[in-house]
C-alpha cells in the first residue's frame, strides 16, 4: 500500500503526480444556517408522515369498502379492492420512507466522519495465542497420540451419512417397480397397451372416432379410451403419457410411417421427446408440428422426424387400426417409451 498516502494530509509519495488535497471543507446546507429553511424541512417531514397516516386509514377504509369475489375486474380491469389496497399501502409506506430520508438529508448532521481501517488479519500476538490454545487443546485431547480412537470415531461418524441417505429411499418407488403393462404403469407402458385394440377417443369429450369423421388436414387431440374412468393421481399420470395427435393427410404425401396408418390417418404421441411438453401447433400444408416450449419441429408425414429444434428423437407413432364397429383403435402400445429421454431408455 506504499502507493497511497496514509493519512488525510500526508504529502504524496514521490511518484504521485498530484498530492492528495485532503477532504474538502464542509459546506453548510440552507437548513443548517437558515432557521426558516430548517422549519420548512421540519414541516415537510412531518407532513409526509401525516400523509402516510392518512393513506393507512384509507387502506383500512378500502379494505372494508371494496368487494372482492366476483367483482374482481371492476377497476381498470383489475379489482377495485386490489388497486386501492395496493395504492394506499404503497403510498403509506412511500411517505414514511420519503419522510425519513428527507429528515436524514436536510436535518441530520451531514458532516462526513473519518474512520480508520484495520487489516482483516489478526495481530501476530493473537495468532500466536490461538495456535497455542489450539495445540494445547489438541494435546490434552490426545487425538494425535491415539489414532485408534480418532480413526474409529471418524469412521463411525462418516457412516452416519448412510441413514441420512437410506431414509430417503421411500421418497418414491423405483422406476422398474412401477413398470406394469396391464395397468400402463412405468416409463415404458401407457394406457394404449392395457388391452388389445384400445379405442382412440377425443380429448375432453371422450367420443370414439371413425376414419370417415376426419377430412384431410384435420388434427384431433385424442386419448386412450378408459382414461376418463381414472381419477386423481392415476388420471394425471395417464394424461402425461397417453395423449396423441391424430392427423389425416393425402396417403400419397406420407413419406414414411404409412404402414401404421388407416386411410391416411396417423397418430403420434403428443408428448415432446425433448423435455415432455404436449405438442400442439400444427401446420397442415407442411405437416409440421411445433412444440411451443422449445420449438422442436417434427414432420408428421415422415414418421415425425425432427426437422428443427433441440429434440433428438421422432415422436413415437401409435399403430392404428379399425375395430369391428368401425372406430379407430391402437393395435398395440407405443413401441418405445414416450416423452423425454432417460439414461436406461435403450436397455
Amino acid at each position: 500500500m506504499s502507493d497511497h498516502p496514509t493519512g488525510d494530509h500526508l504529502p504524496a509519495t514521490v511518484e504521485e503526480p498530484i498530492a492528495n488535497p485532503g477532504l474538502p471543507a464542509h459546506t453548510w446546507r440552507p437548513t443548517d444556517v437558515d432557521p426558516k429553511a430548517e422549519r420548512r424541512a421540519e414541516r415537510q417531514v412531518a407532513s409526509l408522515f401525516g400523509a402516510s397516516a392518512v393513506f393507512t386509514v384509507l387502506f383500512a377504509v378500502s379494505y372494508f369498502t371494496f368487494e372482492v369475489g366476483e367483482n374482481w375486474d371492476t377497476f381498470m380491469g383489475l379489482g377495485a379492492s386490489n388497486v386501492f389496497l395496493g395504492l394506499t399501502l404503497g403510498l403509506a409506506l412511500l411517505c414514511i420512507g420519503a419522510g425519513i430520508i428527507q429528515w436524514a438529508r436536510k436535518l441530520m448532521a451531514d458532516e462526513e466522519l473519518v474512520e480508520y481501517r484495520h487489516p482483516a488479519r489478526s495481530s501476530d500476538e493473537d495468532r500466536e495465542g490461538t495456535l497455542q490454545a489450539l495445540s494445547a487443546g489438541l494435546e490434552e485431547s490426545g487425538i494425535g497420540r491415539r489414532p485408534l480412537i480418532r480413526n474409529s470415531l471418524l469412521g463411525a461418524v462418516g457412516l452416519l451419512g448412510v441413514p441420512a441417505i437410506v431414509l430417503l429411499r421411500d421418497l418414491g418407488p423405483l422406476p422398474q417397480d412401477t413398470a406394469n403393462a396391464a395397468t400402463g404403469g412405468g416409463l415404458r407402458h401407457t394406457l394404449w397397451g392395457v388391452r388389445p385394440n384400445v379405442r382412440v377417443v377425443r380429448d375432453v369429450v371422450g367420443t370414439p372416432i371413425r376414419p370417415s369423421d376426419l377430412i384431410i388436414g384435420d388434427l384431433v387431440n385424442a386419448v386412450p379410451d378408459g382414461l376418463f374412468d381414472l381419477h386423481g393421481r392415476e388420471l394425471q399420470v395417464a394424461k402425461s403419457k397417453g395423449p396423441v395427435i391424430v392427423v389425416k393427410m393425402e396417403p400419397r404425401e406420407i413419406k414414411s410411417g404409412g404402414n401404421w396408418a388407416v386411410e391416411g390417418i396417423l397418430a403420434f404421441s403428443k408428448i415432446c421427446t425433448h423435455v415432455g411438453c404436449p405438442i400442439s401447433l400444427y401446420e397442415r400444408t407442411t405437416h409440421h408440428v411445433l412444440c411451443p416450449c422449445h420449438q422442436s419441429t417434427f414432420d408428421l408425414a415422415d414418421s415425425a422426424k425432427v426437422v428443427f429444434g433441440p429434440a433428438h428423437r421422432p415422436l413415437p407413432q401409435l399403430p392404428l387400426g379399425v375395430d369391428e364397429e368401425g372406430f379407430l383403435v391402437a393395435t398395440s402400445d407405443f413401441t418405445e417409451p414416450v416423452g423425454p429421454s432417460f439414461w436406461e431408455r435403450e436397455r
Partner: peptide
C-alpha cells in the same frame, strides 16, 4: 435513517406494483 427509510421506499414501490 437512510437505510431504514429506503426499506419503506422498496416496500412501498412493491406494494404499488402489486396493486
Amino acid at each position: 435513517a437512510k437505510a431504514g427509510g429506503f426499506f419503506f421506499i422498496v416496500f412501498g414501490v412493491i406494494a404499488v406494483m402489486g396493486g
